[in-house]
Design a protein around this nucleic acid. Structure first.
Length: 324
DNA sequence: GAAGCGTGGTC
DNA sequence: TGACCAAGCTT
């Protein structure tokens, strides 16, 4: 198959063979034009949204679909419009308000991050990637996402969507390989438009392309703006060649038991006895193991009378929480 | 680098 | 229907 001659006069002139391959496959202008017409209207993308609001959205979106984040983000922004507001509340309330978003350690770390923003950065979410990465629960992706989307920093933002788009469009492979984020960031850096604000939009546009069109299971290639240049398409859309990813089971794991135990503690404002947790899971040994891990993670605290509460719960009628 | 960490939707 | 998947982080 021969790709058609390029009609766009704006194509950048590559200076090396490597750049030629990258630029040829993923032209920023085409992705930007597509994004202008296809982007979802998500509230954290609105102009004037605070860096804190962007940061909360990014943490909530870690491994969690947009449709489930939307109502939680709205509620969090109404209740805790600033890092100081969250820091002034208890970690237990953060975990409780996290509801069933999943990975509740994110709520605890977000609360800890808010406290550090207050103590280390005068209550202002920092704009430097290095400072952002120093906060609990903020890793390589989230730090760059906040820097780019809240502060218009010209920095490559690579998530699972971008990784998959690069794997297909640039490398001609069906899936992204494991642990290639650093290499993908280097590739994206070559592609970023020179103007920082435009670079940030390009990043979110590639993410959106991966989320809406270049999806994992069933990509909608006819709707793709870069289909004519996609290396995977030009190679005939070969199936994934490597080893199959280990699928993560959930039923019967400690993970499930932790979730059930936490659900009990989240639903009540009263301290809970070990007997009240018996009903959450029949296997006592596994229940105790899960409970221990929750205590170790700091998600659950134990009162001096032996009962359990969400960590950091403010219980003025109860004995002080024991330090683990 | 692999494993652990929630929850629910999809095909 | 069960395997896969969803804007990762930490150890």
């Amino acid at each position: 198959m021969i790709s058609p001659p390029l009609a766009t006069p704006t194509r950048q002139v590559p200076t090396t063979a490597t750049q030629y391959a990258d630029i040829g496959a993923l032209q920023p202008q085409r992705v930007l034009d597509w994004y202008a017409g296809a982007a979802r209207d998500l509230p954290w993308r609105h102009s004037g949204v605070s860096a804190w609001a962007v940061m909360v959205s990014e943490v909530m979106l870690q491994q969690t679909p947009v449709v489930r984040v939307l109502p939680m983000w709205t509620a969090w922004m109404a209740r805790w419009p600033s890092p100081a507001a969250l820091a002034d509340d208890s970690p237990a309330e953060a975990v409780r308000a996290w509801g069933k978003l999943g990975y509740p350690r994110r709520a605890m770390r977000l609360h800890a991050a808010a406290q550090q923003v207050v103590t280390r950065f005068a209550g202002n979410v920092p704009s430097a990637v290095e400072d952002l990465e120093s906060l609990p629960g903020i890793g390589a992706y989230t730090a760059r996402a906040v820097a780019a989307f809240a502060f218009s920093a010209r920095t490559p933002v690579v998530d699972t969507n971008v990784g998959r788009v690069l794997a297909r469009a640039v490398h001609g492979r069906a899936q992204a390989g494991p642990s290639v984020a650093a290499a993908d960031r280097a590739k994206m850096e070559l592609l970023l438009p020179a103007e920082p604000a435009r670079a940030a939009v390009f990043s979110v546009a590639v993410m959106e392309l991966g989320a809406l069109v270049c999806t994992a299971a069933a990509p909608d290639c006819p709707a793709c703006p870069i289909r004519p240049d996609c290396a995977w398409q030009l190679a005939g859309a070969p199936a994934h060649a490597g080893p199959r990813r280990r699928s993560q089971r959930f039923e019967g794991t400690d993970r499930q038991v932790r979730g059930l135990l936490l659900d009990v503690l989240r639903t009540t404002s009263e301290p809970v006895s070990i007997g009240d947790l018996d009903g959450a899971w029949a296997d006592g040994a596994q229940r105790n193991r899960a409970l221990d891990s929750l205590l170790l993670d700091g998600l659950v605290g134990q009162l001096t009378d032996g009962r359990f509460v969400l960590a950091g719960e403010r219980t003025d009628t109860s004995p002080a929480i024991m330090e683990l």
